[in-house]
């Protein structure tokens, strides 16, 4: 029991229930999150990823099934859901559109203040979070609206990090970033797990985003969980993944092509580093 931080138990959820536009967004979804792991949640657009993560912080209530956080049912009547949102932090997709404060520091202090910290505590937490996401000191007093797109996104992530969550869920954090910004952001997220032991759930529609860092990959399609396994095992189902519009990381394709061209490489390498070593070994 202790090992499982969060358990999702047979979640079913339908939007616009009882109308002509009704559609099942979650169809019997169950999984667990363990303390300190890095999980990639992958699925094509519309597969129900965002719906699922909103359930995890009790922003949506399942039609049936429930979620346990540290053994407690979060949809129980008296459960403190506000406190839960401090412990399970959710960064929405395009989080820069939620910014509203005059300075970056007060923006990032908003969450901690809501969690009941006093001004000083909140600003200290905000300070640490802003540093953590790699923003410079001169940003503190700037208006968040004057920052670049990538910086705004960091501010938004910091605003959740400042609440000191134990689990951090990021909904498509790399959407709309340039390649360099994307790599930097993914590295930073990995560091959060490695250095501070924060459990990470990274939502994405691209295998490349999660192939390197994730300990485990959950694949969703049409509201159902199709695979829930370690990356290597998931990537063996390459045909099924392609049928869902997903595919494997780019590296897999390169290795498959090389093998087809007659180079004796092992096609199971998934990260850039592994692939490089594999190719060098095959050439030697």
């Amino acid at each position: 029991m202790n090992e499982y931080k969060l358990i999702a138990d047979h979640l079913i959820y339908e939007y616009n229930k009882g109308t002509a536009q009704a559609r099942k967004a979650l169809d019997d979804v169950s999984f667990v999150l363990r303390s300190g792991e890095f999980v990639g949640l992958i699925g094509h657009t519309g597969s129900g990823k965002s719906t699922l993560v909103q359930h995890l912080v009790a922003l949506l209530k399942p039609d049936s099934g429930t979620i346990y956080y540290e053994g407690a049912d979060i949809f129980e009547k008296d459960y403190n859901r506000k406190a839960l949102r401090g412990k399970v932090g959710l960064v929405f997709q395009y989080p820069e559109y939620q910014l509203f404060e005059e300075t970056v520091l007060s923006e990032v202090s908003y969450g901690p203040k809501n969690m009941g910290m006093d001004k000083k505590e909140a600003e200290l937490a905000a300070y640490a979070a802003i540093k953590r996401v790699g923003l410079e000191d001169e940003c503190f007093d700037q208006s968040p609206f004057d920052l670049s797109g990538g910086q705004k996104r960091r501010v938004a992530i910091a605003s959740v990090l400042a609440m000191k969550p134990e689990i951090l869920i990021l909904d498509e954090p790399t959407a709309g970033l340039d390649p360099a910004g994307r790599t930097e952001l993914l590295d930073m997220i990995k560091e959060l797990k490695d250095k501070e032991g924060i459990t990470i759930v990274l939502v994405s529609h691209s295998m490349d985003d999660v192939a390197e860092a994730a300990d485990r990959i959950i694949v969703m399609d049409k509201g159902k969980i199709i695979y829930d396994d370690e990356p290597r095992a998931v990537f063996t189902h390459i045909e099924e993944l392609e049928a869902m519009g997903l595919g494997a990381p780019e590296m897999s394709y390169v290795l498959h092509e090389l093998k087809a061209a007659g180079l004796p490489v092992d096609v199971n390498a998934i990260t850039l580093k592994e692939a490089k070593e594999e190719i060098l070994r095959a050439l030697a």
Partner: peptide, 8 residues
């Protein structure tokens, strides 16, 4: 929802 997730 986004602000609720930040404890609003």
């Amino acid at each position: 929802k986004a602000q609720l997730a930040r404890g609003a």
